[in-house]
């Protein structure tokens, strides 16, 4: 998008910059700013979760309360959507939720990089969920899993029409899951930078977009949390579908 060598495009923030060039048999696996952001995210999650519950006090400190809150949040989510047998899938859902949430939050820090604003990252996450859930369905139900695509109580002559529709609907899950997260982050961060550009170009009247940016940053943090929540709740719903079929 950046034309005529303009270096202040609102889309510049999404550029991938390789820090360490690594080439493995023609495949570029360089350590980029995206990899750095992911590494920071994983490090933050690990440090936060280990150190905050390290004391194991009965009356929790604020940090411990925060990590217990996030733990309970996902436990409750699984209980509400999947039921008691959902406890088994807690590590999976919690990992995905924390990775997306902290990734979004790391992206909110100025000059850092939002890896969730790249479709390949979110699509990889959604593909993990999709493939995992499909495998889970086959393991639990065997070939009976295919009855998931048949709506019960339907006349037989409707089946040839409705089974392809159901299959397409099922296949569209990872795409809608990934596009939603990616588009929200991309749009939000682009909007922030576009308004930041107005601050400079408007001169004295620039305090108006500046005030707007402050409000928008708050909204963006809300969206960062909301999208992680949506990702987690949809994962739970898909697990529920695979376990119970309909």
């Amino acid at each position: 998008m950046s034309s005529t060598g303009e270096k202040h495009s609102p889309l510049e923030q999404f550029e991938i910059v390789p820090y360490i060039h690594i080439d493995s048999k023609g495949i570029d696996i360089s350590f980029t700013n995206s990899s750095l952001a992911m590494t920071i995210t994983v490090a933050v999650i690990t440090l936060f979760l280990t150190f905050s519950v390290n004391t194991r006090s009965i009356v929790p400190s604020r940090l411990q309360l925060l990590s217990e809150l996030s733990y309970n949040f996902i436990v409750q989510l699984l209980k509400d959507t999947v039921g008691a047998e959902g406890r088994k899938y807690f590590p999976f859902v919690f990992t995905i939720f924390m990775f997306v949430l902290i990734g979004n939050m790391v992206g909110m820090v100025p000059y850092s990089f939002t890896f969730t604003s790249h479709i390949i990252v979110t699509f990889a996450l959604a593909a993990i969920v999709f493939i995992g859930v499909t495998v889970l369905g086959f393991v639990k139900h065997g070939l009976r899993f295919f009855s998931f695509f048949v709506i019960p109580g339907l006349p037989w002559y409707m089946l040839p029409l409705l089974i392809p529709i159901e299959v397409i609907s099922y296949l569209s899950r990872p795409i809608s899951l990934s596009v939603r997260l990616f588009a929200n982050m991309l749009a939000g961060h682009t909007l922030l930078k576009v308004f930041a550009g107005f601050v400079v170009s408007l001169g004295l009247a620039g305090f108006l977009p500046l005030a707007f940016i402050v409000a928008l940053t708050g909204l963006e943090i809300l969206i960062a949390f909301l999208q992680a929540y949506v990702f987690a709740i949809l994962t739970c719903l898909y697990i529920n579908d695979a376990l119970h079929l309909h």
Binding site: I168, S169, L171, S172, I175, S176, A183
Partner: peptide, 21 residues
């Protein structure tokens, strides 16, 4: 906007899969 986003991604995703197949 959040609601519209949800709806639009659902329909676009299904169309992408349909066209791909």
């Amino acid at each position: 906007t959040g609601f519209g986003f949800k709806i639009s991604t659902e329909i676009v995703a299904a169309l992408i899969v349909g066209v791909g197949i």
